[in-house]
């Protein structure tokens, strides 16, 4: 049975901005964020009626986004992404441009698994248990990946005390 499309379209329009920001944090790039969101939504569309019947579709959609993201880059060098130009960045609104460059740089320095955990835990505000379910990993792995990511970022410009002082 085809999904009740107004529901799907309305839900997409309502939730796309939040999904896109998560996708941007995962990919660090506007175009790839667009791509990831579109791909995920096209994947869930055929199952929409069943998804919506379970209640809130967002956990399911986010799970598809995480798994799609991890699958896209699973066979690529994790440490380097040669680019002639830095990814496009949107015009700064309320925060300095430099802050977003720092954010993209710091997130790009993380292995993809840790990046997914960081976005789930600290942007999507998921609990350890929810993050484990979303990423299909154990809660212990969520904790260890979180600790590693925070430790790694502590050494990055994003969270360094010096950086914080410079910004303030």
């Amino acid at each position: 049975m085809a999904p009740r499309e107004p529901d799907f379209a309305e839900w997409v329009d309502a939730r796309r901005p939040t999904l896109w920001r998560s996708a941007w944090l995962l990919t660090g790039d506007d175009h790839r964020a667009d791509d990831l969101v579109q791909t995920v939504l096209l994947k869930v569309w055929p199952r929409w009626t069943r998804i919506i019947a379970t209640g809130d579709p967002e956990p399911y959609v986010r799970r598809v986004m995480y798994t799609t993201y991890l699958a896209w880059w699973r066979r690529r060098w994790t440490a380097e992404l040669p680019t002639a130009e830095p990814p496009d960045r949107p015009d700064p609104a309320s925060t300095p441009q430099a802050e977003r460059v720092d954010l993209a740089d710091a997130m790009a320095s993380l292995p993809k698994g840790q990046r997914a955990v960081v976005v789930a835990r600290f942007f999507d505000d998921l609990s350890v248990a929810e993050t484990a379910r979303q990423l299909n990993i154990s809660q212990g792995t969520v904790k260890s990946q979180t600790a590693r990511a925070v430790s790694a970022l502590r050494h990055s410009s994003l969270l360094s005390d010096e950086h914080i002082r410079e910004r303030s």
Binding site: R16, P17, W20, R21, L41, A93, E99, V118, V150, L159
Partner: peptide, 28 residues
């Protein structure tokens, strides 16, 4: 931890999604 809170605050600086009126309908 303080670092986790800083990280949470920093992630809020992710850019906003570009406007895409009618995106849901087009995607459907």
């Amino acid at each position: 931890s303080g670092h986790e809170q800083r990280l949470r605050d920093a992630l809020r600086n992710a850019p906003s999604a570009p406007d895409a009126p009618g995106f849901g309908a087009r995607l459907s």
